[in-house]
C-alpha cells in the first residue's frame, strides 16, 4: 500500500493495514497519533511532560496490540485511543494524589510578557495550571471539547456517558475555570476591570 502522511486513508483502514503487517501503515499511524496523544495527556496530567510521554507510549502500545483484531466500522480509532489515554491519566492522577498533589511545579517563567506569543504561552500555562484543580471528569470533558475540538457526541462515546452529561461537565468545568482565573485577569492580558 503506498501511503504518505497526507493520505486520506482513514485511521481505521490504516489500523487494519497495520494489523495485516503493513510497515508503511505503522509509520503513518505513529506520525498521526503521537503528537495528538501527547498533547491530550500533557493537558490532563497538568503539564507533566515526562509522565505524558510514558502515557503516550503505553497507549500506542495497546493500540498496536489490538490492531490484528480491529474491525472496520465498529468504532473510531480516536474514540478508543482518547478513552485509553483518559483512563491511563486517571490512574496516574490517583496515584499522584496519594503522594503529593503539588509535587508538579508549574513551569516558571519570570520574563515579562512583551509579545503576543509570550502572552499566549502565559495564558496556556495558566489554563493548564487552573485545570489541575478540576475534577478528573470535568477536566477530560473540557479538554476534549475546547482544546481537542471534539463534538459532544464524540466525547460522550469516549467517556461512555450521555451528551447531556457531557454538556453538564463542560459547563461546570468552564465555570470553575472562569472563577479560578478571575484574579489573574490582568496577568492574562485582559486588563483590570
Amino acid at each position: 500500500m503506498a501511503l504518505d502522511l497526507n493520505s486520506d486513508i482513514s485511521d481505521e483502514a490504516l489500523l487494519v493495514a497495520y494489523g495485516n503487517g503493513d510497515r508503511e501503515a505503522a509509520f503513518v499511524l505513529t506520525t498521526r497519533f503521537t503528537p495528538r496523544v501527547l498533547g491530550y495527556a500533557t493537558r490532563i496530567l497538568g503539564g507533566d511532560r515526562a509522565e505524558a510521554e510514558d502515557v503516550t507510549q503505553e497507549a500506542l502500545l495497546r493500540l498496536w496490540k489490538i490492531a490484528p483484531d480491529w474491525r472496520q466500522g465498529e468504532a473510531k480509532v480516536t474514540t478508543w485511543l482518547y478513552r485509553v489515554v483518559s483512563n491511563l491519566c486517571t490512574d496516574r492522577l490517583r496515584k499522584r494524589r496519594n503522594v503529593d498533589i503539588d509535587a508538579i511545579e508549574e513551569p516558571a517563567d519570570t520574563r515579562p510578557a512583551v509579545t503576543q506569543r509570550l502572552i499566549a504561552e502565559d495564558r496556556a500555562r495558566a489554563l493548564i495550571g487552573a485545570m489541575r484543580d478540576l475534577p478528573d471528569r470535568q477536566k477530560q470533558a473540557v479538554t476534549l471539547r475546547h482544546i481537542e475540538g471534539l463534538t459532544n457526541p464524540e466525547i460522550a462515546a469516549i467517556m461512555e456517558i450521555s451528551t447531556e452529561a457531557v454538556e453538564s461537565l463542560t459547563a461546570r468545568g468552564k465555570r470553575a475555570l472562569a472563577k479560578t482565573l478571575a484574579h489573574r485577569r490582568k496577568e492574562l492580558g485582559y486588563g483590570d476591570e
Binding site: 500533557t42 499566549a120 504561552e121 495564558r123 489554563l127 482544546i147 475540538g149 468552564k174 485582559y190
Partner: peptide, 16 residues
C-alpha cells in the same frame, strides 16, 4: 476570555 485561553492552549501543543 475563556475561549482565548483555550485557543492559546491549542496553539501551545507540546511536540514529541
Amino acid at each position: 476570555e475563556l475561549a482565548a485561553l483555550f485557543e492559546a492552549a491549542q496553539e501551545s501543543a507540546p511536540l514529541p
